[in-house]
């Protein structure tokens, strides 16, 4: 029985064509599996790269677009640029004292709250405040909501300093500031001074402390008040004044 079965099964052979087809197919698949897998085609990869590039450019552009500007003037004049993520993305000085202040603080890419705290607590600003200088902090709101929050924070942070005052400015009001080499806060003061003295120059204002500017403003104000008080009054006589009768 064994012999008969052996003889019968011996007659079955794999033909050469079957062997050749098998070798061809197996070798092809072996070579394919040795190649590193191609996850994406070239076009897909290019499209993904372009999308990523646009996303990165868009992200960088959004990150580096200021949404609020803070002008800090005492005698050092510096400005902080704050992005929509409440991070300081730029700091600029507008006088030599401002330049010196910038060397002593590290506020770039810090949250605005930390940057403001650091500047107020700096030796330069602390010394100025102790010498009865006036600290002016102007918030230029490009994003209304964020500007309000920042102004609120600064008002609270400077509440203990009686010589500090914070206010909001409209960007349109002070758009000329930088072309004249002034910070937004000092430009605003310059505009007020110009109302009383048209001969005053940006260069003069740039070198003045905020206290000096404020004192000058008060002087102009007092002078004007006195002038108005001495002017003949054309009223009905019920008010104080010399009148013309």
């Amino acid at each position: 029985m064994t012999d008969q079965l052996k003889h019968a099964f011996d007659s079955i052979h794999a033909d050469e064509q079957l062997k050749a087809t098998t070798k061809d197919s197996v070798f092809r698949q072996m070579r394919r599996s040795q190649r590193p897998p191609v996850l994406f085609g070239r076009r897909t990869l290019q499209a993904v790269c372009v999308c990523m590039l646009l996303f990165i450019i868009g992200g960088v552009s959004v990150y580096f677009s200021p949404t609020t500007l803070v002008s800090i003037d005492i005698n050092p004049s510096v400005e902080l640029k704050i992005n929509r993520f409440d991070t300081v993305i730029g700091i600029e000085s507008f006088n030599s004292d401002g330049q010196a202040l910038m060397q002593t603080v590290d506020v770039l890419y810090q949250p605005y709250s930390e940057a403001i705290d650091q500047i107020i607590a700096s030796e330069t600003v602390s010394t100025c405040l102790s010498e009865n200088e006036l600290l002016s902090i102007a918030v230029i709101k490009l994003d209304e909501q964020q500007g309000d929050s920042i102004l609120q924070y600064i008002t609270t942070a400077t509440a203990q300093h009686k010589n500090a005052y914070c206010y909001a400015l409209n960007k349109e009001q002070v758009s000329e500031a930088h072309t004249l080499g002034l910070s937004y806060g000092k430009y605003n003061a310059f505009l007020q001074l110009q109302q009383y003295d048209a001969t005053i120059t940006p260069e003069q204002v740039s070198q003045m402390t905020m206290r000096e500017i404020r004192t000058l403003l008060f002087e102009f104000f007092d002078t004007e008040s006195a002038t108005q008080a001495n002017r003949p009054h054309n009223g009905n006589g019920n008010r104080y004044g010399k009148g013309n009768n």
Binding site: I12, H13, A14, T22, K23, V26, F27, M30, S33, Q34
Partner: peptide, 23 residues
Amino acid sequence: MRSEQDVNRAIEQYADTVKRVCF
């Protein structure tokens, strides 16, 4: 993974056996 030489030898050596099992 084995070499093509190994695979070639195995096919030559065992093709008839595999064919019979298939049969």
